[in-house]
Design a protein around this nucleic acid. Structure first.
Length: 919
RNA sequence: GGGCGAAUAGCUCAGCUGGUUAGAGCACCUGCCUUACACGCAGGGUGUCGGGGGUUCGAAUCCCUCUUCGCCCA
């Protein structure tokens, strides 16, 4: 049963707003996106699973164009595999985003003049929970608007009870394996967020700063001094030594003596350590063990004290081991103000030698952009080297491939030099570190279930660690925690792990991707996926990354509202070359999304034509058509369809490695989403619309057997085209597909079979290709000679009889598409324009008395033959060169010979024409 | 400072392991509202393949070098 079509129902412009929401609701209600673990062949089913886990957006986030790009890519893959018969699962969900979410709520309560300490831990966490419940998940709703075909029944959340169990489980395992430990060292500290950060969370920014050269007088001889250089003078209050290189003769006699630390006025030793770079600055380094990671190492080697001279908020204060170091007038001063004051004081005391402009990289908090302060503290760390080993091997041996390929080296380099991961954060929003310590006997242990009494001394005096875990500690489990881990028997886990492709931005290769691979091996013994596809970045016309702070973003929902989700998706796909950034103009959405919008409309109108012309009457079963019934145009479009399908398949696949690891060839194959979009577009627009639909118009007007053949082929080809395009353009394809006469009620194109190449039609297009050349040739002449578009002309076809007949057989088409009658009669004498068909001997003569100027026609052909002869001369030169014929591959030489024969024939044909025309 | 990548049409990019008359989309130029579509149709390529050198019968493609830009890491 099909819905009757009225022209009103199909306006010339597709109305996205009226269609998309309703269609999406239908898909969801029908469970089209729901995966069933029982159908996975890993659970005894008959389908190969194909799984993607979404990079979970921040729970309070809103959709931006980066999400649009990323999720369009994932949706194309998942829809493609779903149609290909895989048990396709796309797991959606959100990340609790510890620091980011806590920051938002802290800002909120700041408006009420409250701090989190005013509320207290429990009340604050409740407050964040409430906020998340209210605003969280908006982004998942927005993903539906762009057509994301995720299985919403499996929506996950990194802070859900289920995933919290997973976090506890891996923590305890790592702890019991000795891979989680408490470390006392200098870490990156954000004085605004008041938490430590991992190395990855403290991002480098290149900045122009200053290098101050400061004189530290010798204690026993203030007339002599040693000069140090620093970019952070305020830290000198925490200096415990100055260091020189042991082989540096300049300072050899000073090692062992002490110098007087200015401002604080205490004596500190001069020590020798190979850490010092003799070439940098003065070759003397001040050692501040509590406020610099390198100095910390030096301090440990030399058994130095480690005074902390700042508060967590980075104001100056006497902290641990720092009594008497910070002068009274600096206490409570912000670090940067203190820097100015200290420089000023040094200057007035004549201890400032000079100030140099200095380019250096300064670490900033990735969440609030505050300058990170290195700070000595106790933190929990994960020992990474043992975890990194299998993850490194996975990429090296090709179990996991990273696309674009160049990221492989970046990944390998990072893992080879991996450092332990600081996982504790001094915030409240997140998974609390599951370690309890006994206040009585100090026994300490990590627990899966909250303990009540100390297992060593039996006292009920256990206190839980107050830190929470890095958000990425829970995200690293995402590919298996979302599937039911740690329950190894969970049906989803068995059915869908390992997953297949991971699609994300290169920025989080280390934050997230590498850690998922490591934890995948640690917890599951296998890599969580075999393909990492790193998308490009969405940028504006000045190539700046789109961002909230720059205000150069584009809201995907605006684009959906104006042009439809299909138009947005297609535009993004076209720009999505492997590793290529996508440029869009936030000030001109019309221009930016015109390509997708135009194609969406084109597709809609092909459908409109077809539905209105073919009608709703039953069509013949395509399979029942005999070869004899098909016309040359039918054979041509079926040939083109076969190529189109191959092109799409080659661009997208292979979906997975054929063996346990990717072969050299497979490793870089597929995932060319732009090539897929272009191949499908080219087939639909340039082949189907421009030629086949035009060629069918006359056939559809004439009732009879051929009309039924045309209807059947048209419907079949369009059905196949819609399927090819569905992953890219889900909404329009679905709404057109259900209106086809072949539609079965209750079915969805989203679940229809992906087209497979029908080789029986391959190569069947040659006959019609000749006709296309004739039409194109005539159109060129018409254009060259400025014939009015409506002006009918007569073409006289000259040449080999078989070819002449072939052209005459398509006279209706030539009349329609070239406004040209054809005849085999002898052309009348007089000026005429000519089309010579490459090497076939076929010639089309258009007598155009009064229009064609003999001189111009002569010159036109002369130009053509000159260009050809130039190429032909080069070609003959090559073929005459024995070094070429001797060394080049034989098949190439043969191809060149064939080309020479063809060009020669054509050249002769043209030369003959020139002789007859130009005398 | 270390490593990696890129430079091809006005713009964004394809051109894989050397061999096609160097391509696509957008933009642009010319002519058309040919009843599916002007968000369209027909025709048009507008290029010193960043500069210089080398290897080769043959280089956009490989090597060296310079210039410019980008990314990752410290």
């Amino acid at each position: 049963m099909t819905t009757p079509i009225t022209p009103d129902e199909l306006p010339p412009q597709y109305d996205a707003a009226a269609t998309e929401k309703a269609l999406y609701a239908e898909w969801e209600a029908a469970g089209v996106f729901r995966a069933d673990p029982a159908r996975s062949d890993r659970n005894g089913g008959d389908r190969t699973p194909y799984t993607i886990v979404i990079p979970p957006p921040n729970v309070t986030g809103v959709l931006h164009m980066g999400h649009g790009l990323n999720n369009t890519a994932q949706d194309v893959l998942i829809r493609w595999r779903r149609m290909s018969g895989d048990e396709a699962l796309w797991v959606p969900g959100t990340d609790h985003a510890g620091i980011a979410t806590q920051n938002i709520v802290e800002k909120q309560i700041a408006k009420e003049n409250l701090t989190r300490d005013d509320l207290g831990r429990d009340a604050f966490v409740e407050r964040v929970k409430t906020h998340v419940e209210k605003t969280g998940g908006v982004i998942l709703e927005q993903l539906r608007a762009i057509g994301a075909s995720a299985d919403w029944t499996r929506t996950a959340y990194t802070l859900s009870p289920e995933l919290s169990v997973a976090v506890r489980e891996i923590f305890v395992r790592l702890y019991d394996d000795g891979l989680i430990y408490r470390g006392h060292r200098v870490i990156h500290w954000c004085p605004r967020c008041l938490t430590s950060l991992s190395d990855e969370e403290a991002e480098f920014n290149d900045e122009t700063g200053a290098l101050w050269h400061i004189r530290y007088p010798l204690s026993d001889d203030p007339s002599r001094s040693i000069e140090v250089a620093t970019t952070r003078p305020e830290t000198m209050l925490g200096d415990v030594a100055v260091a020189v290189h042991p082989d540096d003769e300049r300072y050899a006699d000073l090692v062992g003596k002490t110098v007087r630390l200015p401002i604080s006025n205490i004596d500190i030793p001069v020590i020798a350590d190979t850490y010092v770079d003799r070439e940098f600055g003065t070759g003397v380094v001040k050692i501040t063990p509590a406020h610099d990671p390198n100095d910390f190492e030096v301090g440990k080697r030399h058994n130095l004290t480690m005074p902390v001279i700042m508060t967590p908020e980075a104001t100056m204060a006497d902290g641990i081991d720092a009594a008497g170091r910070v002068p009274a007038d600096l206490i409570g001063t912000d670090r940067f103000d203190a820097r100015k004051k200290i420089v000023k004081q040094l200057e007035s005391e004549g201890l400032l030698v000079k100030k140099q402009v200095h380019q250096h990289a300064v670490r900033h908090c990735y969440r609030c952009d505050t300058v990170v302060e290195p700070r000595l503290s106790d933190q929990w760390f994960v020992k990474m080297a043992p975890l990194a080993a299998p993850a490194l091997q996975a990429v090296r041996e090709g179990t996991v491939r990273i696309l674009p390929e160049r990221w492989n080296a970046v990944y390998v380099n990072w893992l080879e030099n991996i450092r332990d991961w600081n996982i504790s954060r001094q915030i409240w929003w997140g998974h609390r570190v599951p370690v309890w310590r006994c206040a009585e006997c100090h026994f300490e242990k990590a627990y899966r279930v909250d303990p009540t009494t100390c297992e060593q001394c039996g006292n009920a005096t256990l206190v839980q660690d107050t830190d929470v875990l890095d958000t990425w500690f829970s995200s690293q489990l995402w590919p298996f925690s979302t599937l039911g881990w740690p329950n190894e028997k969970a049906p989803d886990l068995r059915a869908f792990y390992p997953t297949d492709a991971l699609v994300t931005a290169p920025e989080i290769l280390f934050f997230w991707v590498a850690r998922m691979i490591m934890s995948g091996y640690y917890c599951m013994g296998r890599s969580p996926f075999h393909t990492v596809y790193l998308t490009g970045t969405v940028r504006d016309m000045e190539h700046r990354k789109m961002s909230k702070s720059l205000g150069n973003g584009i809201d995907p929902l605006d684009v959906v509202a104006q042009f439809g989700a299909d138009a947005m998706r297609f535009t993004l796909l076209q720009g999505m070359g492997l590793g290529v950034d996508v440029m869009l103009d936030p000030t001109d959405l019309e221009k930016s999304f015109a390509p997708g919008r135009n194609f969406a409309t084109k597709l809609w109108n092909i459908g409109r034509f077809l539905l209105l012309q073919v009608g709703t009457d039953p069509v013949r079963d395509f399979a029942s058509l005999t070869d004899a019934e098909l016309t040359s145009v039918d054979r041509w479009i079926l040939d083109r369809l076969a190529s189109g399908i191959s092109d799409c398949d080659a661009a997208l696949g292979p979906a997975r490695p054929t063996g346990a690891t990717w072969t050299e060839q497979e490793r870089t194959a597929g995932m060319r989403l732009d090539a897929y979009a272009e191949a499908a577009r080219r087939f639909v627009w340039n082949d189907l619309a421009d030629w086949y639909v035009e060629a069918c118009k006359a056939r559809l007007l004439q009732p009879g057997a051929d009309r039924e053949v045309a209807r059947a082929v048209l419907v079949h080809v369009f059905d196949q085209a819609l399927r090819l395009l569905h992953p890219a353009i889900p909404f329009i394809t679905e709404s057109l597909w259900r209106r086809l006469p072949t539609y079965t009620a209750g079915t969805f194109i989203a679940q229809a079979q992906w087209p497979s190449r029908d080789a029986s039609h391959a190569g069947g297009g040659a006959a019609f290709d000749l006709v296309r050349e004739v039409i194109t040739g005539i159109r060129q002449l018409r254009s060259d000679y400025g014939l009015a578009p409506g002006k009918e002309v007569t073409a006289y076809v000259v040449g080999p009889d078989a070819l002449v007949q072939r052209v005459l057989a398509e006279s209706t088409l030539l009349g329609r598409m070239a406004k040209c009658a054809v005849t085999a009669d002898a052309a009348p004498a007089g000026p005429a324009a000519h089309v010579m068909l490459g090497g076939t001997g076929l010639e089309i003569v258009l007598p155009l008395a009064g229009i064609v100027d003999l001189g111009k026609e002569c010159a036109r052909i002369q130009t053509e033959v000159d260009a050809l002869d130039k190429q032909l001369t080069a070609l003959r030169g090559r073929l005459g060169n024995e070094k070429f014929t001797g060394k080049a591959p034989p098949e190439l030489v043969e191809a060149e010979r064939a080309k020479e024969r063809e060009w020669t024939a054509r050249s002769e044909q043209l030369h003959a024409k020139v002789r007859s025309l130009c005398g």
